[in-house]
Nucleic acid binder design. Structure first.
Length: 478
RNA sequence: GGCGGCGUACCCAAGUGGCUAAGGGAGCAGUCUGCAAAACUGCGAUGCAGCGGUUCAAAUCCGCUCGCCGCCUCCA
């Protein structure tokens, strides 16, 4: 079964065919670095991270570019507000973004260019557009003439006449047409600026992506991604600029991820409900956040609420509890010889799900079926002995966990790492718990079950669960 | 007003023409346990917002109605 991808350009799933066999050129719009990144950025980054990982898994050599927009009105405003240089703001939030991504297990793209490092190329593209008549210069500003580009609106399915009628923006009288957008902005005094054929200025927002995409990936690329909200005007404008400049198709597959709402409401400055990634990480593990994000399809809107994060944590508990059981009680079987044919057959549904527009939610569902199967097999083995089926299937399940872990970037830790992190989050000192467990063990030995139960209850109220196993009592965080 | 999307059990969520509508959480019952936990087993939507239609066959296609949401302005 071939890989199918939903293309925003055609509004349907299409079979994916890369320009060059075995190579994928992919560009995703990165953050404008003027503030901490929020959970919506995390969704976009994680969604495309999984797409990147899966394309690599499929054997493609993926050239993945994700930019930093490090020059922009918002950055300048923030710098003025904080009383620091604009570049300090950009650097600060690039660093913060990189840290957040690392914690979330987002792999580094092949190229991570900054707009300010691409000024030369930006100017070249603008010059081309001026030369071929798609752009015009007014007082050091350069604008793109939307009406000259006949396909304008093909991505967002808008038509120019209706846009004009509904235009809500105040019209800049100097522009030939209200829809025209800035490629280059003449700088005001004390603003960051670069020399250009049109005087000192800085790039408009849309042009940087065109320039960076061309510089690192070429004139036509396979995949371009971003949040749904970027379809208009950002991506529409990118298409216009790029195709007007090169005369070639810009992008073959447009991918857009859905929004994250907070308790059923859109995140917005005015509502004050922006959830920064690092604030979410204070309460939940990075893996739980990632699993939550991947539990629904990347194009659907999702709702963020503490309840759903708890659900993700419960799922992780189930996964790692089972994995721990496999590694602890049946290490030789779980890591035993793999029947490759049978493994291939068993992993095929996962591949089919990922091939169907990256259906991570379905993949996660399959994983929990394996968990059930693994536990059942282990139950049977402890009761009735090790069967051939057990010896054959358990290592396959273990191998599937590993393989899917690489693709999704969840389920990929060791149980030790997982439970250690949970314990460190509990806030209850481990030695105190161990002391109580020892007291309880003594009480149990004397059949003093009243006291034993009191200790269990005391710890339970602090969120600590005790498990009596044949090898002694172990504890974990609820 | 234009464009697009969504509505599946108590909650989350997959499924977009054809076996008993995945999976997780919560709940209830049972097995196991000194009691628990974990695990396993069973129960749980005769129905997929509603109404009509197409079809041998529909959650899945078409039409209408109701409800919710996004974009059209910076925005992941």
């Amino acid at each position: 079964m071939p890989l199918k991808i939903f293309n925003s350009l055609s509004n349907q799933k299409e079979e994916f065919k890369s320009i060059k066999e075995n190579e994928v050129k992919m560009y995703v719009c990165g953050p404008t670095v003027y503030d901490l990144s929020h959970i919506g950025h995390a969704r976009s980054a994680v969604s495309f991270d999984v797409i990147y990982r899966y394309l690599k898994y499929k054997g493609f050599d993926v050239k993945y570019t994700r930019n930093y927009t490090d020059i922009d009105d918002k950055i300048i405003n923030r710098a003025n507000k904080d009383g620091v240089n604009w570049s300090e703001i950009a650097e600060r939030y690039i660093k913060a973004f990189d840290e957040d991504m690392a914690v979330l297990g987002v792999e580094l793209p092949t190229f991570r260019p900054k707009a300010t490092e691409t000024i030369k190329e930006i100017i070249q593209v603008i010059q081309k557009l001026v030369d071929n008549g798609f752009a015009y210069v007014i007082d050091g500003d350069v604008y793109f003439s939307v009406r000259k580009f006949k396909d304008y609106g093909k991505l967002s399915k808008k038509n120019i006449e209706e846009l004009e009628a509904g235009a809500r923006v105040e019209v800049d009288e100097r522009k030939n047409d209200p829809l025209d957008f800035a490629l280059w902005k003449a700088s005001k005094p004390n603003e960051p600026s670069w020399e250009s054929p049109w005087g000192k200025g800085r790039p408009g927002w849309h042009i940087e992506c065109t320039a960076m995409s061309q510089k690192f990936l070429g004139e036509t690329i396979d995949i371009h991604g971003g949040g749904k909200d970027l379809i208009f005007p950002h991506h529409e404008n990118e298409i216009a600029q790029s195709e007007a400049a090169t005369g070639k198709p810009f992008v073959r597959y447009w991918l857009h991820n859905g929004f994250v709402n907070i308790e059923k409401e859109k995140m917005s400055k005015s509502l004050g409900n922006i959830l920064a990634i690092r604030d979410a990480l204070k309460n939940y593990s990075a893996e739980a956040i990632r699993l939550f994000l991947l539990s629904s399809h990347y194009r659907s809107p999702i709702d963020y609420s503490p309840e759903y994060l708890k659900n993700a944590e419960a799922e992780l508990d189930r996964f790692y509890t089972t994995l721990k059981r496999m590694e602890r009680d049946w290490p030789d079987v779980a890591n035993g010889v793999i029947n490759e044919n049978r493994k291939k057959e068993r992993i095929q549904p996962y591949i089919n799900a990922m091939d169907d527009d990256f259906n991570t939610a379905q993949v996660i569902g399959f994983i929990f079926k394996e968990i059930n199967e693994a536990n059942r097999l282990m139950d049977d083995a402890s009761k009735g002995g090790v069967s051939k089926e057990f010896q054959e299937v358990l290592p396959i399940i273990r191998a599937i966990f590993k393989e899917i872990g690489v693709i999704l970037g969840v389920f990929n830790r060791t149980p030790q790492e997982y439970f250690k992190e949970k314990k460190s989050r509990s806030g209850v000192p481990a030695d105190e718990i161990e002391k109580l467990i020892a007291q309880r063990a003594a009480a149990r030995k004397n059949k003093d079950f009243k006291k034993s139960d009191e200790i269990r209850k005391e710890l339970e109220e602090k969120g600590i669960l005790l498990e009596d196993t044949p090898k002694g009592t172990v504890w974990r965080v609820r």
